[in-house]
């Protein structure tokens, strides 16, 4: 029984780590630009397809494809931001929602065109399959890797934002764009870099998570709610908030599906409404 609970907690943490990895970029860009981006999942999907394509066509090993998934999505994000999304920073939230929903529809059809409608598989290397025994509990190796990667990235991201010059500029721009611009910070460039970083992380998450989340053209729509939840429940513009929110969502989702499978996704949606109404500005939110 206890090992059961630990197992569910562990799976929940792994799932939450993935949600966080994809969602954190959305949190930064939403906090920075007050830009509602429902298309974030499309970049995660792009990363997944980059990984699958490199694995299947060029025979690269799964782990080797991950940096390319990051770079590919970051590049796509940068181009999309420069060409399209930056035109909408000043637009109303309705326009932003509509535009990004349109982007999602188009990207779903494009993915369908290039890769077909079927579920994609990633070729897991042998050493990631199976389980390993840690302190008397069997834990999946792949999920351990997930948690480790996300933990390392979170620390790196935190250090980047709190210790580097770039991080200071980002924080300044989040707090007050006008004053930051007045101090000579190129806010537009910061926006673009953050967007690329965020979409890159989403792509990495999409590629890493194929085993857990799956990958098909419907991906951006299927998980849109989860990624948004991580940000809105956690509070946009922070790292801590989405981290907490992602872990809560991950654990509740896995536990709900295990203990009350007939309730399905119901639990997570109700939890979302309750959390939203209880914390309108997010769990870790500093701004309303």
């Amino acid at each position: 029984m206890t090992s059961n609970i630990i197992g569910i907690l562990f799976d929940g943490l792994a799932y939450g780590s993935l949600l966080f990895l994809v969602g954190v970029g959305l949190s930064i860009t939403m906090g920075l630009m007050n830009f509602i981006n429902l298309a974030h999942g499309a970049f995660a999907m792009a990363g997944g397809y980059v990984s699958v394509y490199l694995g299947q066509k060029l025979g690269m090993s799964f782990l080797l494809t991950l940096p390319f998934a990051f770079l590919g999505s970051a590049l796509l994000g940068l181009v999309a931001e420069r060409l399209l999304f930056q035109r909408l920073y000043k637009a109303t939230h309705l326009d932003q929602v509509l535009f990004t929903v349109g982007f999602v529809f188009s990207s779903i059809a494009a993915a369908h065109y290039f890769f077909g409608a079927s579920q994609q598989m990633s070729a897991m290397p042998d050493f990631l399959q199976g389980q390993t025994r840690v302190a008397g509990v069997d834990l999946g190796k792949y999920r351990l890797l997930l948690i480790a990667v996300v933990a390392a990235l979170t620390v790196a991201l935190h250090l980047t934002l709190s210790k580097t010059r770039f991080g200071a500029q980002v924080r300044a721009a989040v707090d007050n764009q006008d004053a930051a611009a007045g101090l000579g910070i190129n806010v537009g460039l910061i926006f673009s870099l953050c967007f690329a970083l965020g979409t890159g992380l989403a792509g990495l998450g999409g590629a890493l998570g194929i085993e857990v989340l799956g990958l098909d053209p419907g991906f951006p729509l299927k998980y849109m709610v989860y990624f948004l939840l991580v940000v809105v429940v956690g509070g946009a513009g922070t790292i801590r908030g989405p981290l907490i929110a992602a872990m809560i969502l991950g654990i509740f989702d896995v536990a709900g599906k295990y203990y009350v499978p007939e309730a399905g996704a119901f639990i997570i949606y109700v939890l979302m409404i309750v959390l939203l109404l209880a914390f309108p500005s997010g769990l870790g939110g500093k701004r309303a």
């Binding site: 529809f105 779903i108 059809a109 065109y113």
Partner: peptide
């Protein structure tokens, strides 16, 4: 691919 054109139209 009707969805593609709908998305494009919306944008």
């Amino acid at each position: 691919y009707w969805e593609f054109w709908m998305g494009l139209l919306l944008m």
